[in-house]
């Protein structure tokens, strides 16, 4: 492996950086740029997006003459992505409506399902214990202003 090869992950990395730079540059378009000595809100972001784009381009170009052996990207944690990421989102969506106790119970339950080793009854027990502990500590002992049961519930 002495001849240059294409490192696919590096190429993707470079492309994503340029994409991010493009996004920030696009968002900067509406902002007033100003001058170097009287900077507007857009000045700094505009320069930074430019630099980020250049760095992305360099990474992208270097990917095609890579001398290092390309490292496999490995498996992707689809199940993890599917259950871990929605957990905090679910908590955010329901903590005010359902209230702290049910929202946290369901959040822990959702997160627990991310592992294939987890059995449903163990997940339920774990979620129950986490909720019990957190409610005692945060709601009762520390008196945080969370509503334990929210207006979406009939009681």
């Amino acid at each position: 492996m002495t001849s240059p090869t294409t490192d696919r992950s590096e190429a993707i990395a470079g492309a994503l950086l340029m994409l991010a730079a493009g996004f920030f540059a696009w968002q900067t378009m509406d902002l007033r740029i100003g001058t170097a000595l009287r900077m507007g809100p857009g000045y700094f972001p505009a320069i930074l997006s430019g630099i980020l784009f250049l760095l992305g381009l360099l990474v992208f170009l270097k990917a095609f003459r890579s001398t290092a052996t390309s490292e496999a990207m490995g498996a992707i944690a689809w199940r993890g992505l599917l259950f871990i990421l929605p957990a905090p989102v679910f908590f955010g969506l329901t903590v005010r409506g359902l209230g702290f106790v049910p929202a946290l119970f369901l959040t822990a339950l959702i997160a627990a399902m991310a592992s294939m080793r987890m059995k449903l009854h163990w997940a339920l027990l774990l979620a129950f214990l986490v909720t019990l502990f957190s409610t005692l500590v945060f709601s009762y002992a520390l008196g945080l202003p969370f509503r334990r049961f929210g207006p979406w519930l009939p009681f």
Binding site: I84, T107, A108, A111, A127, V130
Partner: peptide, 8 residues
């Protein structure tokens, strides 16, 4: 799952 709950 505990970590996720505490984080939230």
């Amino acid at each position: 799952p505990i970590i996720m709950a505490m984080c939230s």
